[in-house]
Simulated assay, not measured.
Amino acid sequence: MPATPIKGRGSLSNQNSRFDAHTRVAFDDDWPAAQEEPPWRPATTVTAERARSIITRNASPDIPFEQSINPYRGCEHGCIYCYARPSHAYLNLSPGLDFETRLYAKENAAEVLRGELSRPSYRPRVIVLGSNTDPYQPIERRLGITRAILQVLSEFGHPVGITTKSASITRDLDLLADMASRRLLRVFMSIGTLDRHIARTLEPRASTPAARMEAVRALSRQGIPTGVLVAPVVPALTDHDMERILGQAAEAGALDAWYALLRLPREVAGLFVEWLRAHHPLKEAHVMNQLRQMHGGKIYESEFSVRMRGTGVFADLLRQRFQKACARFGLNARRVELDVTQFTRPAEAASRQLTLF
Rank of each mutant, 00 (worst) to 15 (best):
E49R: 13
P42K: 06
R24K: 13
Q35G: 04
P38L: 00
P32Q: 01
P38I: 00
D30Y: 01
P32E: 02
P42R: 06
A33K: 00
V46W: 10
D28F: 05
R41A: 11
A43L: 15
P42V: 13
D28C: 04
P39L: 01
R41C: 09
T56R: 04
T56N: 12
A51F: 14
A26D: 07
I55D: 04
R52Q: 06
T56P: 04
E36T: 05
E49M: 11
R24N: 12
D28L: 09
Q35F: 05
R24S: 14
T45W: 10
E37H: 12
T56F: 09
E49H: 12
T47A: 12
P38V: 00
T44F: 04
V46I: 13
S53E: 15
A48M: 12
W40H: 06
A26C: 04
A43Q: 15
D30T: 04
I55C: 08
A26S: 11
I54H: 10
E37K: 15
T45K: 13
D29I: 11
T45E: 14
P42M: 03
T44I: 09
R50S: 13
Q35L: 14
V46G: 03
R50Y: 09
V46S: 04
I55Y: 08
D29E: 02
E37R: 10
D29G: 04
F27T: 03
R41G: 08
V25C: 09
Q35D: 05
W31R: 12
S53A: 15
R50C: 10
F27H: 13
E49N: 14
S53R: 15
A48W: 06
T47M: 14
S53L: 15
R24A: 11
A51I: 07
R41E: 02
T47K: 14
A26K: 07
P39V: 00
A48Q: 12
D30L: 06
D28I: 03
A33G: 00
S53C: 15
R24P: 07
R41F: 08
V25M: 07
I54M: 14
A34Q: 05
A48C: 10
V25P: 09
I54T: 11
T45I: 05
T56D: 15
A51K: 03
A51G: 01
A43M: 15
T56V: 08
E36M: 06
P39S: 00
E49V: 02
D29K: 05
D28G: 05
V46C: 07
W31D: 11
W40L: 08
D30F: 02
A48T: 08
E49Y: 08
D28W: 02
W40C: 01
R52V: 02
A51E: 10
V46Q: 02
A33P: 00
I55V: 11
T45G: 12
